[in-house]
Design a protein around this nucleic acid. Sequence first.
DNA 1: CGGTACATTGAGAGATATCAACAGGCGTGG
DNA 2: CCACGCCTGTTGATATCTCTCAATGTACCG
Lengths: 237, 237
Amino acid sequence: MKISLVAGEPIGQPCADCGIRCFSVCAALDKAELRELEHLGRHIHFVSCETVFGQEELTTSVYNLLEGVMRLYKLLPDGRRQIVGFALPGDFLGMTTSARHSFSADAIGAVAVCRFSRTSFARFIEDKPHLLRRINELAIRELSRAQDHMVLLGRRSAEEKVATFLLNWRDRLVQLRGPANTVPLPMSRQDIADFLGLTIETVSRTFTKLERDRVIGIQPGSVCLLDTARAEAMAAA
Amino acid sequence: MKISLVAGEPIGQPCADCGIRCFSVCAALDKAELRELEHLGRHIHFVSCETVFGQEELTTSVYNLLEGVMRLYKLLPDGRRQIVGFALPGDFLGMTTSARHSFSADAIGAVAVCRFSRTSFARFIEDKPHLLRRINELAIRELSRAQDHMVLLGRRSAEEKVATFLLNWRDRLVQLRGPANTVPLPMSRQDIADFLGLTIETVSRTFTKLERDRVIGIQPGSVCLLDTARAEAMAAA
DNA sequence: CGGTACATTGAGAGATATCAACAGGCGTGG
DNA sequence: CCACGCCTGTTGATATCTCTCAATGTACCG
């Protein structure tokens, strides 16, 4: 959880050529607006485990995730951690009405973000209803994801949690990168545990059980979904 | 979970006089806009346990809760239930991008809502950036609440869950109705259990324990917070 | 080669769930 | 007016899932 102090470099490449634009808030913008936005943003890179912003820090910036994966988490005073989500390219972070961030965000592996000053971004969106609607759309999608996750945390067994996580994670990656049978898991077992409301041991045991049952194949840094139907049955139940 | 078929009555009283306007989306509107909105909305009343809208139903309307309390919940195929939130006056429901509701909402006690057709409301907000920003604000507040609840569901003990719930619920009521030492609990123990990811028995036992410890006093339909400091310590931990 | 971080596995403990019985309030109907 | 049934909530005994604590295994890196 090192902290980066770099100011970042101006956006070189035109936003119009941005590979993840169609997934991000920027999908709502026309060419002129994109050019305007190019002057407001800065590209910043983070190495693995660097903190992009921390819980209770002042919300000076908003971020558009360009590349990599981030974990978003909240800490209790005694150190217990709950990961409230993993961010993928196109996700828009730091959009809050309060003066301080309500959760921390750090990099899982190398990460590139497009950073905007909160005030200049606020000015930029002020009278752009199409962009506001787009931001709304993303916020509502996040809220829906959060509600699904509450069901998982409150009402599902360890096995169901793990199966659901693998399928949801795969689906998100498929959205971005297209179909594939192996699911990369860049996050650690501890991250998965803190996301699912389990301990690392229970996650590990559940992975092993799913492998014994020939539902998944465990590889370093990824799993292979062998029996999607059975996994889906577990996740639906 | 009866279903109301009434079309509702036109909004009689001017929106400008609406008691909960300052808490709702409408806070962003000026007088002319409020008058316009009056023609779009219909007041509808629901009795206890009536369903306002159900999971998987088509999203034909959006709702502004005027009076009463609603439970918002998701059901798993096998009947397990997770309440994702309780709605109070001022809360804005049904705002989703998908064609179907992702959760159900029904009345806890008598409820009054202001209903708008989804399409006419969409047209109304289309080019009103101030209203879009207000909707955004509410969505972000909901998201933040959801994230807090994920921490509770994933990482807290039964006692911490109950204490946190009581304090949060009290705080929301204080916002609406002003300070009070007794906290009305219109929802059933089963509702509380399904909100906190517990069973009804555990909720009941935890209430009893908190009463034995002189943290709360249990009354029919409400609890009295006797030792707020201790409750807050439990909720913070 | 040794060290470190991460993951897996095992044994035992503990918190919450499950199953079951009981109590209290309330409306209904005799 | 009281008896009855129903519903909600409480309490008790036991089961079980997941956690905790501890040991071992494995990959990576200096």
